[in-house]
Design a protein around this nucleic acid. Sequence first.
DNA 1: CAATTCGGATACGCGGCGTATGTGAAAAAC
DNA 2: GTTTTTCACATACGCCGCGTATCCGAATTG
Lengths: 198, 198
Amino acid sequence: MPPKRRSEMMEETRAKLIRAGRAAFAEKGYAAASMDELTAGAGLTRGALYHNFGDKRGLLQAVVNQIDAEMAARARAIGSRAENAWEGLLAEGAAYIEMALEPEVQRVVLLDGPAVLGDPSRWPSQDGCLRTTVDTVRGLIAQGVLKPVDAEAAARLLNGAALNAALWTAASSDPPAVLPRAVEAFRCLATGLLAARA
Amino acid sequence: MPPKRRSEMMEETRAKLIRAGRAAFAEKGYAAASMDELTAGAGLTRGALYHNFGDKRGLLQAVVNQIDAEMAARARAIGSRAENAWEGLLAEGAAYIEMALEPEVQRVVLLDGPAVLGDPSRWPSQDGCLRTTVDTVRGLIAQGVLKPVDAEAAARLLNGAALNAALWTAASSDPPAVLPRAVEAFRCLATGLLAARA
DNA sequence: CAATTCGGATACGCGGCGTATGTGAAAAAC
DNA sequence: GTTTTTCACATACGCCGCGTATCCGAATTG
């Protein structure tokens, strides 16, 4: 290993902090996560944190951005694998629902994220998941598959529905059993956007 | 005024605290709201708070319950005023969207509430808004107007869509202008639940 | 009128965040 | 290659806020 430049040392530190933050926020929740514990667990101190991320919120933003990016990439991949664009949208939604069953995603991205950072639409780096869905919807509207509604509005509602489907599923006594019902309901809602009536 | 019995004094105290809590949580957000300030503003001390509500979360739960009950009542009233049950569901949704534009509702019920208290589906006193929508959906399914999907799932997704419509609208630069687009998108989604295709 | 409850006030300790300051090693200056 | 500067991170401090334990006085009970 070459003697590590300063910049890559810092990048490594950031990565360590984000990793530790992800774990702590997911397990304890944002409010209950102690920055002292968190940084110590990563072999660092709060000094590193405030230098790299400004404050506690800054770290949360970084963690959320990372998870969001991963989710968006997965959803996009799954969506593009479908037969056609319409099935792609449905697959994308189903993917969101399944990903949002992950406790880490629920706690950090869906609950604490919006409460602490505000609505995703207001984030500087925009929400990746939302962007992905907007693109998909835009394409479908251009193809005439969907009614010419506001793409951003439609995407936002679809994502919102998917996330609530996941939260509802997770809150049930037997998540695996009710998941299909949630996905089915989501599919029904989505068909409301179709231009053509079968 | 008769010399006030002890129980009604306590009820009055609770009301004062809830009123102060509503204001403080709405303005500062849950995390930034100081219980010292809050209680002092109501002419009391933290002692009264911990005696009546157990802890900070307890007060939030009470505040959220109150707002939720008000919203549910309003939505139910508006929905029942419609021509038929189907239009009632749409009106109910539109009502939710408009109510959720209120900063107090957004901050307290939609953002801090779920983050601090957990998902509404898990609340002991169940979410009133959700219950209202479930009832409406059940009725429509019984009438054969809607597809026989899971009523709870459908209601949950409808509410989720409505709330996200509101958050999206509020996040925009010109809320009044985009509100119609949000409502329109919501209506489209809802039609996906219709059994008959027009 | 004495005894008792109990709603609310007072006082204390602890933990956590943010900031101001220090330090040693890498990078730059020459 | 030595000196100087930078800067990533550590250390140390102060403040605020929550929760709890204890106390007080007025309304209830007999």
